[in-house]
Nucleic acid binder design. Structure first.
Lengths: 355, 355
DNA sequence: TTGTAAGCGTTATCAC
DNA sequence: GTGATAACGCTTACAA
C-alpha cells in the first residue's frame, strides 16, 4: 500500500509529527526538544513543561531509526541462543518482554549454531549490523567466553545466563541449580532411598556439571556414593533417558530412584519403566529438572526443579539496560543476579519398595 | 576478524567503512554504490563489478540504521504472537530464520495479549515505532481481521498463519488441518472403532473449528455420528484433557477411541486413562494434534498430526519479503501458500477391544 | 547509465 | 540553559 504519501498526508501512515514540529509548537529549538526526550538535567522546569506539553499535544513519538543513526546504536536488545528447549527460550523471552514492555526497547531474536566454526563470525556480523544496545546469551552458548569477549569488543553490553555464576555479577544472571538439586536428592534419601541412579547432562555443559555436583553433595551428606553402574551418560534428550533407563533398570540391583538432569530424559526413563511394567513411583521414584510442560504432561506428574527462567529473562533485561527501563529497574538489578530455583514435588516420588 | 582497521580507528568498534569510502575507492558516486547495494538494473556490468570489488576490498557493510532512516522502514520482520504453545512459536521462528539467514533481515519478536482491549493500540505503537518491512501473525491472533487491517493501513506487509486460508493467498500461509484430521479419524474407523470421542478446541478458534469439521467429515463418511455425550469441550490445555477424559471415560458406554484437538489435551486424556487403569491403546486409542514434544515424551507415544510449522515460518518469510531473500525465494512463494500437515502414527492407536 | 543536491529525523558540537 | 549548524550513512528526486 501507499506508504509514500506526500504533503497531503492523506489516510493511513499520514506524516507523523517530528521533532521540528514539536520545537516549533513549543517555541524552542530542536535540540531542546531532544534534551527533553533524553532526560537531560540542564533544563528549566518551565521549558521542559512547555516541550512536554507540545509533545503530548502532537502525539509525538521520536523516530527510533533516526535516533539509531545518530546514536550509532539501535534501541534493541538481542537474544542469542542455541537452546534445545523451546519452553525455556520462550519463557525467557517472556521475561525479557515483561521488563521492556513500557520502554522503547524491542527484542531481537537470533538462534545460532554452537557447533558451527563460523559462530563467532556470525555473531559478529549480526551485532555489527544490528548494533543492539545489549545482548543476552542463553546457556549453553552463555558458557562461551569468546562470545562474551566479542560483545565486549564490539561495545555491546551483555549478560550471560547460567546455572552458576559465569562472569562478574554485572554480566551474569544465574540460578542456584546445585543447591536445589541437593535439596531434591536429599528428599529422596529422607524417604529411605539408598540406591539412587543418576542420568547426566551432556559433557562440557556447565549446567550438567552443576547438577551433578549437587547430586553428589547430597549423596555425600548421607554417606552414600554413586557406583559407576548407577551413573548413566546423557545429553538432555528424551532418547538418552530411554537408553539410560534400559541400562539402569536391567541391573541385577536396579536403583529405587533415578535423578535425571532434565525433564526430557526423565520422561524417557518413565517410558521405559512403564514399558517394563515397573510402577512409578511405587517401585521407582523419578526426579527431573526444568519443570517443563512435559513434567506435568506425563503420568505420573514429575517431581522436578523449577528454573526461574522467566524471572531470569526480566532480570537479564534489567541488568542490561536499567537506564531505559524506567525507575525501579535499577534498584532491582542491584539486588544481585542469582535467582532461586525451587524443588517442585509431584507424584513421581515415593518411599522405596522395601522401605 | 579485523574488519575495522583504520588510521585513528582505536580499539573496539573503530570506524567501519561507509558508502563514501566505497565510492571513492571505486571512483564512482555514492549513488552508484547505492544502486549496486540495492540491485538496480540500470548499471553497466563493468561499474557494478568495480563497485563490488571495492565493497569486497573494504569489507563494507551497509549501515542498516541509515538505510532504515532513508527508507523509512526497518530491515526487520516482526513476529506477533499470542500462542500458548512454545514449541510452535519457536519452530516457527526457526523457519523464519532459515529463510532470512542470508539476507539483511532480522527477526523481531512481539508477544501480545489477545485478551487485552489495548491489543490494537499496542500493535499499532509497535509497528509505528519499529517500522518493520512486514509482520507475521501466528494463530490465534492471525484470525483477528482488525489486526490485518491495521497492518494494511500502516503500510506493513503481513502474512497470517492459519489452519485454513484466512485471507487471499498473498497474505496467508496455511495448513490443511481439516483434511489430515479426516485421514487420522478414518484410520480409527478402519480399525473398527465406532464410538469415537472428540475433545474440542477453544470456542472461536478457527483451528478448533477446522479440526472439528475434519473429524465430523470422517465420521459422516463412515455413516457414523457424534453423540452429544461423546463431544467434550476443551481449550487446548492439559487440564481440559483431564476433564474431558473424566467425563468420557465414566460414560456407561465409553468411547473406544478419542480424538483430541491437540497433543496437550491428549496427554491429559492419557493420564486419566492410566489413572483409571485403562490400557492405552488396548482399551482406548488416542490421537492428538500438533506433534509437539509431548507427543513423544508420554507413554505410549502419541499418534498425532504433524503441523509443518517450521516450513510455514520459512514460507511466511518468503511471501512477506521475497525481494530481500535472494533468488529462489520468490519462485517458492508462488507455489501456493498451503502446506501439508501429516498424520504420524505411533503407539497410542490399536483396534478396539472387542474388534 | 550515472551524478548532484536535498533530504530522512535525530543527536553532538560549540558557541551564546 | 539554550540554540544554530554540522554530522550520522544512506536514498530519492531530478538532472546530465
Amino acid at each position: 500500500m501507499a506508504a509514500q504519501d506526500r504533503p497531503g498526508g492523506k489516510g493511513p501512515g499520514g506524516k507523523q509529527p517530528t521533532i521540528n514540529d514539536v520545537a516549533a509548537l513549543a517555541g524552542v529549538s530542536k535540540k531542546t526538544v531532544s534534551r527533553v526526550i533524553n532526560r537531560s538535567e540542564f533544563l528549566t522546569d518551565k521549558t521542559r513543561a512547555a516541550v512536554e506539553q507540545a509533545i503530548e499535544q502532537l502525539g509525538f513519538v521520536p523516530n527510533p531509526q533516526a535516533r539509531a543513526l545518530a546514536f550509532r546504536r539501535n534501541f534493541l536488545i538481542a537474544l542469542l541462543h542455541d537452546n534445545p528447549n523451546a519452553q525455556t527460550v520462550l519463557n525467557f523471552q517472556r521475561g525479557v518482554l515483561d521488563a521492556i514492555k513500557d520502554s522503547d526497547l524491542a527484542l531481537l531474536v537470533r538462534p545460532v549454531d554452537r557447533g558451527s566454526d563460523k559462530l563467532l563470525d556470525d555473531v559478529r556480523t549480526f551485532l555489527e549490523k544490528q548494533r543492539p544496545i545489549g545482548a543476552m546469551l542463553l546457556p549453553p552458548i552463555s558458557e562461551n567466553d569468546d562470545l562474551a569477549a566479542l560483545c565486549e569488543n564490539l561495545g555491546v553490553r551483555y549478560v550471560r545466563i547460567g546455572s552458576a555464576p559465569l562472569d562478574d555479577a554485572k554480566h551474569c544472571v544465574s540460578s542456584n541449580d546445585r543447591e536445589v538439586v541437593t535439596v531434591a536428592v536429599r528428599s529422596l534419601v529422607a524417604l529411605g532411598h539408598r540406591r539412587i541412579g543418576f542420568v547426566r547432562g551432556p559433557v562440557g555443559f556447565r549446567s550438567a556439571a552443576e547438577r551433578e555436583k549437587g547430586f553428589l553433595e547430597a549423596l555425600a551428606e548421607a554417606g552414600l556414593d554413586l557406583p559407576a553402574e548407577l551413573n548413566a551418560p546423557g545429553n538432555y534428550r528424551y532418547t538418552a533417558g530411554i537408553e539410560a533407563a534400559e541400562a539402569l533398570l536391567s541391573l541385577p540391583a536396579p536403583p529405587t530412584a533415578i535423578f535425571c538432569s532434565n525433564d526430557e530424559m526423565a520422561a524417557g526413563v518413565m517410558s521405559v519403566a512403564h514399558g517394563k511394567g515397573i510402577k512409578v513411583p511405587g517401585a521407582l521414584s523419578i526426579i527431573g529438572f526444568d519443570d517443563s510442560p512435559t513434567a506435568t504432561h506425563i503420568w505420573p506428574a514429575l517431581s522436578t526443579v523449577r528454573w526461574p527462567i522467566r524471572e531470569m529473562g526480566a532480570r537479564a533485561a534489567q541488568t542490561l539496560v536499567p537506564d531505559f527501563l524506567g525507575p525501579g529497574a535499577k534498584a532491582a538489578g542491584d539486588e544481585g543476579a542469582v535467582l532461586a530455583s525451587t524443588f517442585v514435588e509431584r507424584q513421581s516420588v515415593a518411599p522405596p519398595p522395601e522401605g
